[in-house]
Design a protein around this nucleic acid. Structure first.
Length: 314
RNA sequence: GGAGGGGUUCCCGAGUGGCCAAAGGGGCCGGACUGUAAAUCCGUUGUCGACGACUUCGAAGGUUCGAAUCCUUCCCCCUCCA
């Protein structure tokens, strides 16, 4: 629900697009004919495309995984499709993002160790196949994705295997899939330690305030998450005074700003009572204003985190 | 004036003798949401001293072991004809 201009205004520097979804609709060749994803959506700054590995995981009822790749069915019309590492490299090339993700398998949590081990090793082999088949390595930075579930030795093996392949950046996948927060941080800690500190480290799928800050402390440089916009659409705002469930009746006559300490357009101009009203009425503006706030809130959080790092305060 | 249809829990609307505190939808209230099948999904929604009891289906009476459902009278609404 955000325009590129709005995102720029919020201080966003990069956005994420999804290979699986764009492959199905409008299809990657069309995006290529449109002049690439940046021109297609009119976003001049960096774009990252996820590979579709997570969709294979989240759409598990429709998939069949083998060494060669994944056969899956479209969630839109049920049609059969096949993703291999080589195929995904082609699709991501057509889409034309600046950072592209290797095709991986994201095992569920909990999962059998034997399965996670097998899956992780296949993900590493797939990473090599991605690297070998990458079409435009000079224009697109290909990141490998560490897997290995919640097992220390598997995580370390995965990280080392990928580092050996020498990617321009490394992602940590397979986290934030339902495990307890403490466990995630523990796994993150020893996984991040295995990754070179002169390359970006990217924790995939994490977007709650606490994990972001703790993640940075453990050496993570990048995150992505649907959380701020999804919960915004569902009437929940992250604020400096705690979560605000804007749809709750207690805000019916609360004429104060959503977050008294926020500099975003929403907080500078509208009351909680008005935001609640918009939400209750199902107005699209509710989703937009709350999204603006949540995005600004997290973006500003990270701005502050960067300042603290520069000042040696974190 | 004549003919017909109807009044159900906050709203709309099923239900035409027991399995009905009453389907379903909406609204209301609350919850969930983390590499976006999500402007989605889940739960609650008569009262209470609450694994039971009480009050409710326009009103009042009646039939029956038992009524939102059948009968009588009354009140109100809608459609068509005049």
């Amino acid at each position: 629900a955000m325009t590129p201009a709005e995102l720029e205004g919020l201080g966003a520097q990069i956005i994420l697009s999804n290979t699986y979804h764009l492959y199905l609709r409008p299809t990657s060749p069309l995006i290529e004919r449109a002049g690439g994803i940046h021109r297609f959506m009119n976003w001049g700054m960096p774009v990252l495309t996820d590979s579709g590995g997570f969709q294979v995981f989240s759409l598990s009822k429709l998939r069949k995984i083998s060494e060669d790749g994944v056969e899956f069915r479209s969630h839109i019309d049920g049609s059969r499709h096949f993703f291999s590492p080589e195929m995904v490299m082609k699709v991501e090339s057509e889409i034309g993002a600046d950072i592209i993700m290797a095709f991986d398998e994201c095992p569920p949590y909990p999962a059998e160790r034997a399965y996670v081990e097998k899956s992780m090793r296949m993900t590493t082999r797939w990473a090599k196949r991605c690297k070998d088949s990458q079409l435009r390595p000079d224009e697109q930075a290909l990141f490998g994705i560490v897997q290995g579930g919640m097992h220390r030795d598997l995580r370390i093996e995965s990280a080392r295997g990928l580092v050996e392949l020498d990617f321009p950046g490394y992602a940590i996948g397979g986290l934030s899939v339902g495990e307890p927060h403490e466990l995630m941080m523990e796994v993150l800690s020893y996984t991040a330690d295995e990754l070179p500190d002169n390359k970006p480290r990217y924790l995939m799928g994490v977007g709650d305030e606490r994990s972001l800050v703790e993640g940075v402390k453990l050496g993570i440089d990048m995150f992505d998450c649907v959380l701020p916009t999804r919960i915004a659409r569902n009437g929940l705002a992250m604020t400096s005074v705690g979560d605000v469930v804007i749809k709750n009746s207690k805000y019916t006559e609360d004429f104060s700003p959503l977050d008294p300490n926020c500099d975003c357009y929403t907080c500078r101009n509208f009351s909680r009572a008005y935001l609640r009203h918009l939400y209750k009425c199902g107005e699209i503006l509710s989703a937009r204003l709350l999204s603006i706030h949540n995005l600004r809130y997290l973006l500003r959080l990270m701005e502050n985190v960067r300042k603290m790092i520069e000042n040696d305060e974190l």
